[in-house]
Design a protein around this nucleic acid. Structure first.
Lengths: 250, 250
DNA sequence: CTGGCCCAGTTTGTGCACAATCTGGAGTGC
DNA sequence: GCACTCCAGATTGTGCACAAACTGGGCCAG
């Protein structure tokens, strides 16, 4: 399952051409990020360097670099001499992340309101295309696709709004809120309803930006409200993570 | 010059105790970050791995790790096979960063407004202490200290507001806006006036939160207004950096 | 039986050597 | 004289080997 061929020479991969170097790296980041987002890697999961290296067919150093990147984005927690774990946000952090999202996304909706009307065709097309994808995923009951598309929807709005810096910040927050949802969701909740997105798209396309703003705020509140932030999670890993994050008294 | 003693054993430093490992790393990050903030390392400066390794007395791998972290925070730009450079933001990016700061800091001021009054004593003390430090730096005409304290002031407000996630986001934005200021400041401008901060502290301590909000927004606008964002900067490095950032057509 | 200690195995951390790539300049043909 | 090619030096990228540290279980004393 790990390595298809028992022969070792496959391990020797001195990078024939370097064109794929940077993309291989970000490919792994995306791959792990998506696996975390759609719950294949639940919070607290140990991410052993060697296992990941085998899984992606790269060297351990590459994995180490990727883990450092993910740690910087707070998606994984790096504990010195212990290894990497899928981050397990505390209730406090979850609330903070959602508040930050409200702050950023409110700003994005304000930006969308200020865009010259009517919106350009390619923008409308992107929105409609995305809506179609979400509809399809919902009809197919493809939960993983729905989760991924839900995040992409918010990111798409940020891109359309045109501030790449805010978009980058939001990308991180979306990953982290996915983590928070994974850690605190109630049994049998439906996370991000595609219907909210549908109405939002309709409001934007129909030139009703004020309504879109209201919908977005209600949408984010609704997602957070579906979480059980009072639930006491398994504190064992939390304690270690917390103390490992601030090991320096100076 | 490279190694003080011609004898080789000094080079062998297998980390006697690991307690200082993580802190050494973040110490270098802070050190480089401050050097960039107070213009000792202007935008575009080449950061050779070996030079930094010598300067900080650590191995090249450690420096590489630090540069990766700084690159993630957009403070340095990493160009494949070319090396690391102090980031040189474009005018567009500078505007975006300042807009993002307005968004985040407006949210922080709203949070401060909602804090229960009167504010706790330790909070007031922190604000007063900081004000005293800024006054002292201004009297001493210590430009470097003023720049550093100015950033710390905004960060202090974020900490007091109590959302660590927003604080983390703002920390990055402050570093990047420092970079933007370094790249676009007009000759003979006074960056962040300590007087604005003084009035802000007074408004907060004096329980006039609405006034504080207004002051903050005006303050940020003023800082951005002092920049010459129309100036065409040297595009040679920009082109390379831009094309290196998005090398993947897929 | 309980608690502490120690040891073996596994995982992470780091220095190092070498490979790949880029830069700038000299050399050569048209 | 101009442009193109090629080479030497320097810098970055990567695999690898070994060292350090942690984990879990067995062992021994009380």
């Amino acid at each position: 399952m790990t390595t298809a061929a028992p022969a070792k020479p496959a391990r020797r991969t001195p990078v024939p051409r370097n064109a794929a170097r940077n993309s291989a790296e970000s490919r792994i980041v995306r791959s792990i990020g998506e696996a975390i987002a759609d719950r294949r890697l639940p919070p607290g999961t140990k991410l052993t360097e060697e296992s990941l290296a085998e899984a992606f067919g790269v060297s351990r150093e590459r994995v180490r670099k990727v883990l450092l990147l993910l740690a910087q984005r707070r998606v994984v927690t790096l504990i010195p001499n212990r290894g990497a774990f899928v981050a397990k946000p505390t209730a406090k952090e979850a609330r903070e992340v959602f508040e930050a999202r409200r702050v950023i996304e409110r700003a994005i909706m304000e930006r969308l309101e200020r865009l010259p009307r009517p919106l350009p065709d390619d923008m409308l097309e992107k929105l409609r295309d995305h809506g179609a994808l979400e509809d399809a995923a919902e009809r197919a009951a493809d939960r993983k696709a729905m989760i991924r598309l839900s995040g992409q929807f918010h990111l798409l709005l940020a891109e359309v709004a045109g501030n790449a810096t805010l978009t980058g910040i939001l990308a991180d927050l979306i990953d982290r809120s996915g983590l928070a949802i994974a850690a605190f969701e109630r049994r049998s909740s439906h996370t991000c309803s595609a219907d909210d997105h549908r109405r939002l798209i309709a409001a934007l396309i129909g030139n009703r930006p004020g309504e879109a703003m209201t919908l977005m705020i209600e949408h984010l509140d609704e997602v957070e409200r579906q979480l059980d932030l009072e639930a006491k999670t398994d504190t064992r890993i939390d304690l270690k993570a917390i103390f490992a994050n601030e090991p320096e008294p100076a």
